[in-house]
Amino acid sequence: MSAQQFFFIVTAFVILFSAMMTVLSHKMMHSALWFVLALLGVAVIYALLEASFFAVVQVLVYVGAIAILIIFSVMLTRKAMEDTGSPVNKTWVLSLVIVLLTTVGGFLAFRTWGALKAFPADLLPVHYDIGELGLALVDPERFALPFEVTSILLLAALVGAIYIAFGRKEDNQ
C-alpha cells in the first residue's frame, strides 16, 4: 500500500464518519461542526488528486464562508443550541434499506469496471496552470455558457436574500 493510498483511506473514513455524525448528532451545532470536518476532508482528497487550486478553493469557499454562514444561522436560530431531540424520524429503516441496496448495487456494478482500479496518470505541468482554467471558463467553445448560467443562479440567490432581508413596507407602517 502506497502512502497515497494510506492517506486516501484514512481521509475517506474521516469524511464518511463526519458525514454520518452530521446527520446523527443530537445538537445542531455539533452537526455543523462535523460538517466542517467533512468539507475539510474533501479538500484533502482534492490535494491528494494534485488539484491544489480546488483544495484551496474548497477551504476558502466552503469552510471560510459557507460553513461559517451555516454556523451563524444555527447559533442565531431560536433554541437551536439546546435542541436535544432525536435526530432520526420514523422512516429511518426504509432509508437504511434503500441506502444499503444502492451501495451494494453500485459496488456490484462498478466491480468489473477497469477504470476504477487504474491509478490516475500523473498531471502534466500545463495542468497546474491556473491560467488554463481561467481561459477554459471564458472560452465559448468550452465552459463559457455553464459559467454564465451559474452566475444567474447566484444572482437569483442574491435577489432572494435581499427580498427576505428587506422589510415589507406595510410591516413598517
Binding site: L33, V36, S52, F53, V56, V57, V59, L60, V63, G64, A65, A67, I68, I71, Y128, D129, I130
Partner: peptide, 21 residues
C-alpha cells in the same frame, strides 16, 4: 505551490473556525 496567495487567504478561514469553536 502555484496558488500561494489563495492559500494564505484560505487558511485564514481556519482561524475564523477556531474563533467560532
Amino acid at each position: 505551490i502555484g496558488i500561494g496567495l489563495l492559500f494564505i487567504i484560505g487558511v485564514g478561514g481556519l482561524g475564523e473556525i477556531a474563533i467560532i469553536l
